[in-house]
Amino acid sequence: MKVTVVRAGGVAGMVLTVEVDTGELDADATAQLTGLVDACEFPDVPPAATKGRADTFDYELAVEREDGAVRRARFGQGAAPPGADALVTWVLDGPHGHRRIGR
């Protein structure tokens, strides 16, 4: 399973992409990530839009399963669907991700 978080905007206006692949994680980290993914909702209807607030962050969260199925959510800061904030924080702030700045 591969989890990718794109964070863009902010006062810097930079695009940060962080990717975590369970193929590179130990069993504990894989269990943590799987639990967070299972607890995360990917609503068909996006959460209430927060677009238009200057310099807040916008996010894209994508989870690609081994069978190739991809679930994706896009949301603004403060409008994450249930479970998404915890998953995004684990990916962005944890030590497991491959980080890249750029569009």
Partner: peptide, 13 residues
């Protein structure tokens, strides 16, 4: 659009 990479149509770009 809602793709964060597009920066609300390039506002910071």
């Amino acid at each position: 659009d809602d793709d964060p990479r597009n920066d609300n149509g390039g506002v910071h770009i």
